[in-house]
Design a protein around this nucleic acid. Structure first.
Lengths: 145, 145
DNA sequence: CATATTGTCCATAAGATTAGTAGACTTTCG
DNA sequence: CGAAAGTCTACTAATCTTATGGACAATATG
């Protein structure tokens, strides 16, 4: 039941990008790696994956870097985690995005499945409704207090 | 965000034991393995781990087998999963049972941590309040319908 | 156009984890 | 004693995670 380092690094990187002022400011991979203490070459892969998924835009060359492809309020933690770590589901037979049948005789009366469906719902109800902007706002409220 | 096969097998095995009538009836590993379609030698390890954790009792020799060490209503899915798969937490810094600091400058205002704390709470609020008996009851209600 | 800078892409690898398998040993009952 | 059950330890193949390294492509500037 763990978030991988990849997922964690990805979220931290996107949060940093979401924090930029003015919004959309380009930030270099190297700067992100240093500020968030993430191995540079590993972070490259992660950002590339997020770019391919349409969450990031980049520009090459001098003055280049990364910025969010969409407003921070429309990128959810669920999208990030699915992109980097795959489906959010304890077992495949309760996955929204990557359903696969398990081998129990009847899925409809399978106790394990019913319980895991509840767990998945609990997780996705948070992850799919929490945007980068939401996270940022909570951080600022907490820091002010 | 996955339940391992070990965890899944463990829950299925305990559910089968919880289903026994009269309660406490001894069931052989072999029978569980066949009915639940679990590799025998793997299941041995799993049941042994659960026994060491105090969730199961066993008897050796002819007529031996396993039975629940406690009433099905007082064994939760959380206990089983923690025993077999370790702490239930997306990141260590939000773990109840195995807390470890992450390396962010201030845990109190860490956005990732706040979000993951919510996720962990969502998971444990289900897993720690759902007992084998609860699962069984839901199965029976569903099957009746 | 040359060059420095920045991201892109692909290959490789060490270490950990998962999912099993094997076999010798111990206890219990008849 | 001997058969039937669980116990315990060790081993292994495959996969996943977490990286690292290097050649390549695009861009801005002078």
């Amino acid at each position: 039941m763990r978030l991988s380092k990849r997922g964690e690094y990805g979220i931290r990187a996107l949060l940093l990008l979401a924090k930029q002022n003015p919004p959309g400011e380009l930030v270099q991979i190297k700067q992100i790696a240093i500020k968030e203490n993430i191995p540079l070459k590993y972070l490259e892969q992660i950002l590339l994956t997020l770019r391919h998924a349409g969450l990031l835009h980049s520009r090459m060359g001098i003055g280049g870097g990364y910025h969010l492809a969409k407003p921070a309020s429309s990128i959810t933690l669920g999208q990030i985690i699915r992109t980097l770590d795959g489906p959010i589901a304890p077992v495949n037979c309760v996955s929204q995005m990557a359903y696969e049948p398990c081998d129990c005789p009847d899925e409809n009366t399978c106790g394990l499945r019913m319980a895991m469906l509840d767990v998945r719902t609990g997780m996705t109800s948070i992850l799919d409704t929490t945007s980068l902007a939401d996270v940022l706002q909570r951080m600022q409220s907490k820091a002010a207090a």
